[in-house]
Design a protein around this nucleic acid. Structure first.
Lengths: 332, 332
DNA sequence: CTCCTCTATGAAAACGTTCCCGCAATTTCA
DNA sequence: TGAAATTGCGGGAACGTTTTCATAGAGGAG
């Protein structure tokens, strides 16, 4: 039914080998011949069948991306950016989500693993052993997870947190609250606590909770008890919960209390007041993770799997996006 | 490198044909033999290679979904639901976005078309001719687009709009404003205008604009001039723009003005005040569209392409989700 | 003029399945 | 009990590529 390489070959008066080469190794075929082939292909509407292509062993041309939750507003821009990057590099991206459950993640991996050349696992729930085993079978990149020997992209909130502390300090805040729902990026390196202490700001930690809107609602009522004038939330959704409850309590943001989110999702820019937040650039993370995977794939082909030198770690920074939910601390 | 059907065959002491049958037509092989094969396969960690499988002609086991914009918060829940549904039915979903530009949509289609058994095109920008041509080459389902002869899922906002009108009427509103940024679902059937007129409510239309937050900000300032006490926005993002600007203007929602969004995205439930909106169930639409495509694929295999009787149209309803952004009209 | 080295091309194997045929053994029916 | 139908399985072609190997011709060096 579909037009095959053979038809192109006979239309151009060459063998199938030459047609194949005209596409995959254009400089191995004489310019005039190549042009004739390309013309014939265009005329017939030919494009190579990826199934046949990958069967013969040259990879699938597809990258797998497993995220915890596609519907979490943090991920769609990342998916979009990775698609764009991958398409630019001649790859397709196959996305699946794990629902943050190990069983579902395994199922997702099983479903895509044979269709892709490599996998990006975001905040994987798998054990270290399983990840190593998987890495032995196919190129792997983990994000927001550290496993020795596996290439990794890590997000560092340090810069963003430091800037948040600087801003709050400059605004005259003294006592702050952090609503914790366990972000892997925060458990590493200089902790949020240290960043605040360095500026002589007190920081109380609430939680750990689940990263939900209701968590913010709940935590907001506790802020007063801590005599705090600023809140940093686990992410934008939680921060919006805080905003919501503050409004209910008749507490004005930012006049009485300042609120800071994390992620800079769409939510942050469309809330009222617009939300000061710590941005993690989706394009950067998508590009770096995608490129790292492609590099890992190339290396696997070259040196064989398992034989990795120091597996690379790339770090993504963050920065504060000041908006309307932060302002001067109320005069005491 | 990977374990093939041949190794399973020799491990189980049968031919490759039998192993193949054990997986694809289990009732054609004797139970004891089948079990032996399944055991051997499990032991070796065998799973069939999709590339080889699709090469031989039995489809790719993948559904293609092209949406205008992955990062639009309306789509991620739909993508997620379709993935879940498809996995349940033994399919994988390959998602791409068109950025609402014809050229990009063509590129996206070209990139995925050879890898999928069929395509779901959401609000396609392609011409009717192109769509017909495409439908001749592969199973196709369009959503939010009407093309004679092509299976279609359409969203009807009629019920939701009617309920919105009912609620506003009951709350005592008289004059309303609709912020238009061209929704295909509204241009069909009983128009929004008619729904309101039927309840003796006046409705002024603003726009058409772009469906952006800033559109809501802009439109909000115009509401007072229309002496309206209720606003229906093109979607939730625009509605949040309205909320934002109303707050700026010192207009209280819902005390002075009621606001209604469309889509019931995450935004609606986490805004302050929470947003009354018209919900389109993502699970329903994903399930119906996915099932329709699978059905279309099955029919194409049976009767050959192009030979379609009446191509089915399935309609998805909508309903009002009352939240805190609507309330009694202010006493005049 | 001969031999050698390239370069451009073709022939054919291989990739891992599925599925059509064919064969034997078993069951069914008269 | 014999013929016919059915069942369970194996052999092998086919799917559309890529890639290795071989070959023919073109040049270049001696």
């Amino acid at each position: 039914m579909a037009v095959t390489i053979r038809e192109v070959a006979s239309a151009a008066g060459v063998s199938v080998s030459t047609v194949s080469r005209a596409f995959t190794a254009p400089d191995q075929v004489q310019p005039t011949t190549r042009q004739r082939i390309l013309d014939a292909a265009a005329e017939l509407g030919y494009s190579p069948n990826p199934a046949a292509r990958s069967l013969r062993g040259s990879g699938t041309g597809t990258l797998g991306l497993i995220v915890p939750d596609i519907a979490n507003p943090f991920f769609p821009p990342i998916i979009k950016a990775m698609q764009a990057r991958a398409r630019h590099l001649g790859y397709t991206v196959l996305v699946a989500d794990s629902d943050e459950r190990e069983a579902d993640e395994m199922a997702a991996i099983a479903a895509v693993s044979k269709r892709v050349d490599g996998l990006i696992l975001w905040a994987s729930t798998l054990t270290e052993d399983r990840l190593h085993e998987l890495a032995g079978r196919m190129p792997l990149v983990v994000v927001n997870r550290h496993v020795p020997g596996i290439p990794e992209v890590r997000i560092s909130l340090a810069a963003g947190i430091a800037q948040a502390a600087e801003q709050l300090k400059a605004y005259g805040h003294r006592r702050c609250v952090f609503i914790n729902a366990s972000r892997a990026e925060l458990s590493r390196g200089k902790s949020i606590q240290e960043s605040f202490e360095a500026l002589d700001l007190s920081l109380s930690e609430l939680g750990p909770y689940e990263p939900r809107f209701e968590t913010g609602v709940h935590a907001a009522t506790l802020v007063a008890a801590h005599e705090a004038t600023a809140v940093i939330a686990h992410n934008d959704v939680v921060a919006l919960g805080v905003l919501h409850q503050m409004a209910n309590l008749g507490v004005s943001v930012p006049r009485d209390v300042s609120v800071i989110g994390i992620d800079d999702t769409l939510l942050a820019s469309v809330s009222t007041p617009s939300l000061t937040t710590i941005r993690i650039d989706p394009e950067e993370i998508a590009t770096r993770a995608g490129d790292l995977l492609i590099e890992t794939i190339a290396n696997a082909g070259r040196t064989g799997p398992g034989l990795d030198a120091a597996s690379p770690i790339v770090e993504i920074g963050s920065r504060l996006i000041p908006r309307a939910s932060t302002g001067p601390a109320p005069a005491h």
